[in-house]
Amino acid sequence: MLKINQVNIVKRTSPDTAFLTLDVTINPGEIVTLMGPSGSGKSTLLNYILGHLPPAFIASGAIELNGLDITDKSPYLRKIGILYQTGLLFPHLTVFENVALGLSETVSKSERIARISELLDKVGLLHCMNRMPETLSGGEYIRVALVRTLASNPKALLLDEPFSKLDEQRREEVRAWVFDYALIHQIPVLLVTHDKQDAIAAASRIIEINATNTP
């Protein structure tokens, strides 16, 4: 369960400007969709949940994951995965090596190969295992980034316009796989998107951020 508990984000101005207020609990396996215009604070909220709030903002309220307050924990201890629109793969590593970064160092070589092969196969990219990121199409690139995020077994998942660069057919396939994965593994998901089809496919609550940056 991911709980965004009375979070209030303020932009440092003179005087400070109210930016976004949100209070929501996302249950295990649920995909809650956050929609709103650019500049309404969606990405800033994701950064706060991850522990990367930009210095231009001040925030209050708590982030709880499975009953534990993680508000002051270091980002790498939060066990929250995120997939951005751009993917952000390391250009000097192969697809296999990029995905392997999401796995624990305690995982054996054979387990590592099996796990990565299984995930890549699920998104139709097993044949790309030894390719470099620069050789991938936009859709392949995003799918590899998604697999790398899920390989780390996150306890919660943030999706920031993750399907926007996929063609319609691949978008539906990958979206369905991600949502099924979250349900099977009981991962709470916060989805940021401008696409109403993404929100409809999530089949759960939709929170719209309006012009005053509050739901």
Rank of each mutant, 00 (worst) to 15 (best):
D160G: 00
P75M: 04
T106L: 04
Q197M: 13
G36I: 08
V99I: 13
F96A: 09
A199G: 00
S152I: 00
E172M: 12
E172H: 12
K109P: 10
F57K: 05
L183C: 03
L88N: 14
V24M: 02
L120F: 06
K42F: 07
F179G: 01
L150V: 09
E208D: 04
N153H: 12
G36R: 11
R112W: 01
D23W: 00
V174T: 15
D121M: 06
E208H: 13
S110I: 10
K79R: 15
I4T: 02
V178M: 06
R143I: 06
I113H: 14
R115M: 10
D198W: 10
F57H: 02
L101P: 01
A151S: 13
L22M: 14
D16N: 15
L77I: 00
G29L: 10
L68F: 07
F90R: 10
S164A: 14
G36K: 11
K165I: 09
L46R: 04
G51D: 08
L146T: 09
T94D: 03
R12T: 05
L103D: 01
T214Y: 05
G67A: 09
S117N: 14
S104M: 00
E134I: 13
I9P: 05
V32Q: 00
G87W: 14
E168V: 14
I31V: 15
F179C: 02
S38I: 08
T13C: 09
R170K: 10
I26H: 09
N47T: 09
E105T: 13
L45Q: 04
D16G: 03
I113L: 12
I9Y: 04
I184W: 02
I200P: 00
S110H: 12
Y48E: 01
L93Y: 13
A201H: 02
E140T: 07
P215Y: 01
G124W: 08
T33M: 09
I31R: 11
L83C: 03
Q197H: 14
E140Y: 10
V178C: 11
L46I: 08
I80H: 01
P154Y: 08
L2H: 11
A62Q: 15
S108I: 06
H92A: 09
R78Q: 01
T71S: 14
N8G: 05
E105V: 07
N98L: 08
N210F: 04
G29F: 12
V123L: 03
L22W: 07
T13F: 08
